[in-house]
């Protein structure tokens, strides 16, 4: 009969110390494509055409990207003849304002001013999450569950999943919000004590894309619940999830402003 405890102890620590130090585990994992506006040829709309989720539009001859609709399929990168769309490892895309997911040439961020200090301070070292699947493809659940595996070991950061919404600080929603899940989702949110936060987790929950429209789609959380963190990604990887959680409790800075990724 194997001695499981001994085997476990012998194996030693598997957990990374990221984000303090150590690997984030996402070596080679592609993120949202980056736009090099200087390389973009005016009037060409191949990226707009190539995008299956209409995340790219053209305004005055230049592309405007809504990363809240991006499913990281990399098609625009393949189609752009000028190399203006580039593959990147930008996946830590959690933001507080939905508008920060829209690429903007003129960057001016004054949003940091009104951070909700009191709430964040009370949850900084201990956050309890209730997850609700509002119609996902299960890739988001797969990555959220991975947070509890020995590599990411979410507990080390003082963040826990709780079975009951009564004990939850954060509602983590995946999926575009299908019709049968609409009331169920609201009931879960109402069962949570205040102060309570909401994270739109994955591109479906941010904008519905590509599961919006149709007879049984949804458009994500906009207009349904007050969202504190928007995290696109298809699915967002575990390190992107951790970044977004730590962003919520003000332990990591936001990386993306005006659709642009901080170096």
């Amino acid at each position: 009969m194997p001695l499981w405890t001994w085997t476990g102890l012998k194996a030693g620590k598997a957990a990374t110390r990221w984000p303090q130090s150590g690997p984030d585990g996402q070596e080679g994992v592609l993120g949202m494509p980056r736009l090099d506006i200087a390389a973009c040829r005016s009037g060409c709309d191949l990226c707009v055409e190539s995008c299956p989720t209409q995340a790219i539009h053209q305004v005055d001859g230049e592309p405007v990207i809504d990363y809240g609709r991006c499913i990281v399929c990399q098609r625009c990168v393949e189609e752009c003849p000028e190399g203006a769309m580039q593959s990147s490892y930008d996946w830590a895309f959690g933001v507080r304002q939905r508008s920060d997911l829209i690429w903007s040439a003129a960057l001016e961020s004054a949003e940091a001013a009104d951070l909700r200090k009191r709430i964040a301070a009370s949850q900084r070292r201990s956050l309890h999450i209730r997850h609700v699947d509002a119609g996902s493809c299960n890739a988001c659940e797969s990555e959220i569950s991975a947070l509890d595996n020995p590599f990411y070991n979410l507990h080390r950061l003082g963040i826990f999943f709780t079975p009951s919404p009564r004990f939850a600080d954060l509602l983590m929603v995946t999926g575009p919000v299908t019709a049968p899940m609409h009331d169920v989702l609201l009931a879960t949110w109402e069962a949570m004590p205040e102060p309570r936060s909401v994270m739109a987790t994955g591109t479906c929950a941010v904008s519905g894309a590509p599961m919006d429209e149709g007879y049984a789609g949804g458009s994500g959380l906009e207009g349904i619940l007050p969202v504190d963190i928007w995290l696109p990604g298809c699915p967002p990887n575990p390190a992107a999830l951790i970044h977004a959680l730590l962003l919520l409790v003000e332990r990591m800075p936001q990386k993306v402003t005006g659709g642009q990724y901080a170096q």
Binding site: Q26, E27, G28, L30, V72, Q74, A146, P235, N237
Partner: peptide, 15 residues
């Protein structure tokens, strides 16, 4: 999954 990410750019072998 990490190996898949390194090999293909996607932990779920997409795209």
């Amino acid at each position: 999954k990490q190996l898949a990410g390194e090999l293909t750019g996607s932990r779920y072998l997409r795209s």
